[in-house]
Amino acid sequence: MSGPAIRLTGLRKSFGVVNAVDGVDLEIADGEFFSMLGPSGSGKTTVLRLIAGFESPTAGTVELAGVDVTRRPPYERDVNTVFQDYALFPHMSVLDNVAYGLRVRGTGRRERHERAEEALRSVRLEGYGARRPAQLSGGQRQRVALARALVNRPKVLLLDEPLGALDLKLREEMQVELKALQRQVGITFVFVTHDQEEALTMSDRVAVFSGGRVEQVAAPAELYERPASPFVAGFVGTSNQFAGADVIGRSGTFSLRPEKIRLDGDGDCAAAGKVAEVVYAGAFTRLVVDLDAGPRMVVLLTSAPGLPALRGQAVRLTWSSSDLIALD
């Protein structure tokens, strides 16, 4: 390769007066699991479609492995796309679904069946080739769609919210499987999601989108611990944002993660308040605290029997100044 797997330069896409993508510059390394994270309408799916060639940019360029493919049609780009609805052919067997792309390319019957079987083994569906999609669970259909995309051995695999239709437990299982599969096949994955936990769980790096622009590109830990803007701090996980002059006597705007706060514990920062609500969430309990200084804080604690009794009680919150994130 003569460059990164994907390079986007000055990428713009307008629909009438709406700028869906507004000047995006990105480089995605070969073999990287890269996620594009953002709310609906932030431009992430449009960027994915521009990489795939399903949309043409208003301005800017798309390069794959150092080659400008901006004006090339989708079938001339070495990428495959997995969509949320999987788009499997209901009248075909699983094996024929997986082999379909090879059939279109004119690959011989024996070779395409061998490669389709190999792709099914890679997603742990060996022995399912004779079934129809309707005979599979949602998670199995998702893996068939992955196998169909992988069978062509693309340099880049584009995934457009492929786990969005799955229930929570299956989605969590598939997150682990997807990352393991990406390591196994060693190709570049570009994953679009609005679920921040999904992005943090699987990705080598994450780009956070807002209003058609990239707010920050970073590894998951850096993105969570050192957000570059108030939007990133609020969108990636839960964040308490407040004016420092009101709470700690320092100028500026700060962010503080709920799990960094303790009840009357150690720490060089403190604030008094009243518990407005106690929300039990299994292993953890969230306290919503109205500070005497004005702002509302969310505190995340390990669940314990006495926590529900704190509703309506005065409390003292403490934290370390090193856990504060300056957002100015």
Rank of each mutant, 00 (worst) to 15 (best):
R109D: 03
M174S: 08
A145M: 08
L158T: 01
L170S: 05
P90K: 03
G138A: 10
K179D: 11
V156A: 08
E161M: 02
F89S: 00
E118L: 08
E111H: 10
Q142A: 09
P90D: 04
K169M: 08
L159D: 06
E161F: 09
Y86L: 07
A130K: 14
K169S: 11
R110Y: 06
A130F: 12
V156H: 04
V94L: 04
R132D: 10
N97S: 04
G164R: 03
H113Y: 12
L136C: 09
H91V: 07
R153P: 05
R132Q: 13
M92V: 02
R115V: 02
L178Q: 10
L157A: 00
Y128L: 13
E114D: 12
D167I: 15
V98C: 00
R153I: 05
V94N: 02
L166Q: 04
E126S: 08
L146P: 03
G106T: 04
V94W: 01
V104Q: 09
Q140R: 05
A119T: 00
Q142P: 09
Q135F: 13
K155Q: 00
P162V: 09
P154H: 08
V123C: 04
R141P: 09
A134W: 08
R121I: 01
Q142W: 12
E126H: 12
P90I: 07
L168C: 02
A134F: 13
L166S: 06
L181Q: 05
L178I: 15
K179H: 09
L136H: 12
A134D: 13
